[in-house]
Design a protein around this nucleic acid. Structure first.
Lengths: 229, 229
DNA sequence: ATAAAGTATGTATTTTAAACATAATTGCTA
DNA sequence: TAGCAATTATGTTTAAAATACATACTTTAT
């Protein structure tokens, strides 16, 4: 490939959209209908419009695909290898989004659907690397703030919360220690509601205080301040 | 400003180059000679060439300005507000670099020089925000790995190392606790050399094992593994 | 010799993390 | 209606890590 140094770059935004479904972390992928990488899966993306900033482009793409717009969204990294796109110079600014399964109402088709992160199909471009990096970042975030709740339904049990942590951190956690710490998490609210039925003891439901998402880099990230508990 | 949606973006790389000099963190700035922001200071940057990736562009800019090339360099964030450049749409991928004062041999002129981060002159574009974010990122890194040594001379005293930590973290540290932990830092090597003279007790010198810089996102970042000590 | 300046060092206390086992509540079924 | 299966709920002990804190040592200059 010979580069023409006067040609301009194209810039896209790609969004890794992650949710928790069927007891697994899943990512939303679209099947490419054109070359290059025809019939391979790709993360949703699009060109940045001249009138919008990068966050807005990512939100637009997310909204177009999932119709959700109040989610955890964070710029991940910008990938600019000259060879990442086989026939033009496309720099992509990757974002990742954590969304609640219950908030999304997409019709999955053979061209759009959720894929377990632990078993990804062949992906276009450098999208495998982008997804892997988004999981790394999610782990790092989770050590600083309880982003995992962005994957949980509005009301959730501590067992579900623990499961989200385990999937993200890729290790089993001790139930008693987890609950002890979880209960001290700032923003966690204990409800007077319980799951019902299914031949077992009902579990108490919890929710999180609404935290404003203002789409400025690392949202609401702060050292977990503990309640005095 | 009316946007023509068909116009292409321009993409630049800007590098926040930080060093420790005169007991302060300082950043390298160039004075703009043209509009916009004529006579304001800016962080060094340039267009990304079609044949190079973003890391290479950042390394090239760094090398052009400082003639150093084995340094800590990390992609910071991509800034893409449509109004960040007053008369065209320029998206910039910002990097930050930590360099040793002793490695740099630049001639400072009225148009190129070091500025204390604690007292920045008026800056062009959104460069103030970029510098502030680079300091935030440096603090986050320092909690994970001893990047501070990238600012120190090859041989340094523990007092100098502590000072670098204090400047980055913006707080005073306890000398005994600092030294206790510093001595357990993986990669730190105790030398049989001492500073000499200056009317006080000589201080032992230390150095760091060479860690390979491979310029792939978060370089050599890992939880500080402790020596058994 | 001694004063000044900076280097060097250890212990006790508090906080946080880790390990670990049993009782309680529900629906189902015999 | 007794008891089984499945899952929720809970507390204590131990180990590790972080914090607070004061004095003696080594050198040069006077």
């Amino acid at each position: 490939m010979i580069f023409n140094e006067t040609k301009t770059h194209e810039i896209t935004v790609d969004v890794v959209i992650v949710t928790m479904k069927n007891d697994a972390l899943q990512v939303l992928l679209v099947k490419r209908t054109n070359e290059p990488f025809k019939d391979k899966w790709a993360i949703p993306g699009g060109y940045v419009r001249l009138s919008e900033n990068l966050d807005q482009a990512a939100l637009r793409i997310l909204k177009e695909r999932t119709n959700v717009d109040n989610i955890y969204l964070e710029q991940l990294y910008t990938f600019g290898d000259p060879l990442r796109h086989p026939n033009s110079r496309v720099i992509t600014c990757a974002y990742f989004a954590l969304v609640r399964a219950e908030d999304i109402n997409i019709v999955t088709t053979p061209e759009l659907g959720w894929h377990k992160i632990s078993a990804l199909p062949p992906l276009a471009f450098d999208h495998k690397e982008i997804i892997e990096y988004s999981m790394k970042r999610t782990r790092e975030r989770l050590e600083l703030c309880p982003v995992a709740y962005q994957l949980l339904n509005e009301k959730f049990t501590l067992t579900e919360m623990q499961r989200a942590y385990e999937l993200i951190m890729r290790k089993k956690l001790d139930k008693r220690n987890f609950r002890k710490k979880a209960l001290c998490t700032n923003g966690l609210i204990e409800l007077d509601e319980y799951t019902k039925s299914s031949s077992k003891r009902p579990a108490r439901l919890y929710t999180f205080e609404n935290i404003e998402l203002n789409s400025k880099r690392a949202h609401f990230i702060s050292k977990k301040k503990e309640k005095k508990c």
